[in-house]
Write a protein that binds this DNA or RNA. Structure first.
Length: 275
DNA sequence: TCGGGTGGTTGGGCATGTAG
DNA sequence: CTACATGCCCAACCACCCGA
């Protein structure tokens, strides 16, 4: 928390919630010049929207400049720092929210921890109005939940960072690869098999997958197998050799080495520690 | 279960082709 | 021109096998 933080107006909702949305807090603040917040990590989503002024956001080692009638998203468990401009400090509103579908809703707006800045493509009056209504009626919890959905709808309609079709295609390939691995992990899998199943050339598939996930399909497969093996070691009395077979290794020795490399202890030690 | 040797497989760089 | 897709190549890595 910043020193002596004062809110122009902030309302903590007593867990206003519906099936897929929890709304924790709504607030607004006209920040003094160079007013900063963080670095901080949150355990839910925070969306800020600027009525006036500008400032910077630092996230994942990147810096973004945000100006009036734009917004920015801070995702859970991401280290964030933001600071008002020294000459034109921002006047913004924020909402703290979470829920099983919130990530999807923000993604539909083109927002994620990689793309945290919302830039409306059309007249921003609609978003301004929704945010002002939220602030005005911040004690009416069900009204606010309704307005949050309206906000998402408006942001989706006005997003200029919609993912191009080819991104969707790539995501489809990634999903196919993951699906294949999760279904076939217990069988001997070659990368060519996965590539063939997805209709891709192997090296291109590897590159595609690594770009999206940060790890190769082969690494993902091994991690998945060892995770499954951990579950079996804890909840099943089968021999280590049988567990090795069950998660797709044709050889218990190879499994044991791979397990120790990833977990740090041998399979038998892992089982022994859990008892 | 571990360590070492060996052969096969994988990842990734690079050049090139293709489509919009 | 750009982004996507493919093919080739080779160093590095991994699975497998064997002995301890």
């Amino acid at each position: 928390m910043p020193k002596n933080r004062t809110y122009d107006e902030c309302y903590f909702l007593n867990y206003a919630a519906c099936a897929d949305l929890q709304l924790y807090e709504i607030g607004k603040q006209a920040c003094p010049p160079s007013y900063s917040y963080g670095p901080t990590v949150r355990n839910h989503y925070i969306f800020h929207y600027l009525f006036e002024g500008k400032g910077i956001l630092k996230l994942n080692g990147k810096q973004y400049t945000i100006t009036a009638h734009q917004g920015f998203l801070i995702s859970p468990n991401i280290l964030a720092y933001y600071e008002a401009d020294p000459t034109e400090p921002w006047n913004y509103a924020w909402v703290h929210l979470d829920g099983p579908k919130i990530r999807d809703y923000f993604q539909k707006c083109g927002l994620s921890s990689e793309q945290p800045v919302f830039k409306p493509s059309l007249d921003s009056n609609e978003i301004d109005l929704i945010m002002l209504q939220l602030l005005e009626h911040n004690t009416r919890e069900l009204y606010c939940i309704g307005k949050i959905y309206e906000l998402f709808d408006a942001m989706i309609a006005q997003s200029v960072t919609k993912e191009p079709a080819n991104i969707d295609i790539r995501l489809t390939y990634i999903k196919k690869i993951i699906d294949y691995i999760t279904i076939k992990f217990s069988e001997p899998i070659h990368m060519n098999d996965i590539a063939h199943a997805c209709g891709l050339e192997r090296s291109y598939m590897t590159r595609l997958f690594k770009d999206a996930t940060g790890q190769t399909p082969y690494a993902y497969l091994n991690i998945y197998r060892i995770k499954k093996a951990c579950q079996l070691l804890l909840h099943d009395s089968a021999s280590i050799q049988n567990i090795a077979y069950a998660v797709g290794y044709s050889d218990a020795f190879t499994f044991s080495k791979a397990f120790k490399r990833q977990v740090g202890v041998s399979p038998s030690e892992y089982r022994g520690k859990s008892i």
